[in-house]
Design a protein around this nucleic acid. Structure first.
Lengths: 248, 248
DNA sequence: GTTGAGTTCAATGTATACAATAGTATCCCT
DNA sequence: AGGGATACTATTGTATACATTGAACTCAAC
């Protein structure tokens, strides 16, 4: 389809979900949206359906649509999908990258480095955090571009966006001290540098391994945070089962 | 949504695509389908949209829907996605499998063994080939079930179905001598046995490796067949570029 | 006070009429 | 005859009215 009004509705709703204006769980009623966007319910329903396929929206028959909300299980599964795809993709990127791909990756990496420094220095962190998240996605997507597999790239971007929306970073700030967060960002940056180096060196095995470590680390970190949030800010360690899903 | 009529239309069309009744490229007009299914165009359009998300249908604005047709590039990308997901999944399966999962995998394996023997003995092969393809999917899906990641399982099933429809096995029979095909099926069966053994032994590294080899082998085989078909049955070897996308 | 059936209603699912458009056929001009 | 602009038409996209249904609410019985 990709017709005008359907696209307008799709982009409108998608943007509001990605920006956080529509929070997870919020119900999306076709009539309200139609009035806001100034089109009829039909293209709105099409848009919602496409957003459902993207994994950003949940639709139940006769009940309606709402911004997707994830359970811990699903979040973990999403992360694991990312791990499988991105580590494989990093290997391909090391093999198939051009110089121009490499520059693109380097560019995102530099931007993250700059932002990380700013973040550590700053006291008002919120806007910088948003930028950093965007550059993080740019870094990972640049790698998938270098892998020369459009399907894989699309899928990974999709998973990134799902994770950003559904999990976002609502609790991180409230749960971690600034010093911890700074340390965290430094670790991420260092990992990214390792990945970059392996790809630059055209070493597929190393690139794959580095990406695998990076994402597994990220997963462990996030799962710890979630479990803390769920148990009401009182920190508790994850059980072995909850940390499972490690293949190497 | 998941409302009655939409589901009816979805299942109706999906079935016909998967059974091959609607060939790749065939146009799917909403009015015709609506009349066949005895519903209005609205649920038919919904169904087509969902099938597009599944990757079985292509929709262009103001032109309409048609059964998906793949280019070589996209086929290769799909295969590579499968490689990434299934090898990772095989590793997880080796870790997370229960005894009951193992029985399920073994069951599919035994069925394939039986069918392969029948196939080699038979002269009328077509119906057996279909059954074999189904059991192959069952084998791979059983492994993903054992991996305990529903998202990954769903995604892999999706990719299997896409490959079956779009590529199917239309040319295989016409391009290969029976002896070659028999040999091929024996190789596949042997590979499956290796994968099974690794999972049974709870050896994630081996399971991953075996699955990787199996799928890479499958990809190489298919790409060779496609290139033959495209160059008009006259066999030619693939160029290194066409065989690329190997990460290990 | 709690449970249960019955009723109401708000939101979705469906059908259909109308509008917009891509592709095709026609026709004219060179 | 060939090429290009134009008109036509078939099919899709959109709007809207109507049907259906899940969930909330009422109220009576226990």
């Amino acid at each position: 389809m990709r017709s005008v009004n359907t696209d307008v509705a799709y982009n409108y709703i998608r943007k509001k979900i990605l920006s956080g204006e529509y929070a997870p769980g919020q119900s999306l009623m076709t009539e309200v949206l139609a009035k806001d966007i100034k089109v009829s319910r039909t293209p709105v329903r099409d848009a919602l359906r496409k957003l459902e396929a993207d994994g950003l929206v949940t639709i139940r028959a006769h009940v309606g649509a709402s911004v997707k909300q994830m359970q811990l299980k699903e979040f973990r599964e999403t992360c694991d999908l990312r791990l499988a795809l991105e580590s494989h993709g990093a290997g391909l990127a090391a093999l198939n990258r051009t110089e121009s791909d490499l520059h693109e990756i380097k560019f995102a990496l530099s931007a993250m480095e700059r932002l990380t420094d700013q973040l550590i220095a700053a006291d008002k962190e919120q806007p910088i955090l948003g930028e950093l998240a965007r550059e993080d996605v740019r870094f990972h997507v640049a790698i998938m571009t270098a892998a020369k597999n459009d399907l894989m790239k699309k899928e990974i971007l999709r998973l990134h966006l799902i994770n950003r929306v559904v999990w976002g970073a609502p609790s991180e700030q409230s749960l971690l001290k600034k010093a911890d967060m700074d340390a965290r960002h430094r670790v991420v940056l260092a990992k990214h540098k390792d990945i970059y180096k392996a790809i630059a060196a055209s070493d597929p095995v190393a690139a794959k391994k580095e990406m695998e470590f990076h994402l597994q680390d990220l997963i462990d970190h996030n799962l710890r945070l979630i479990s803390r949030a769920e148990s009401g800010v009182i920190a508790r360690e994850l059980t072995p089962e909850e940390l499972a899903y490690r293949s190497t």
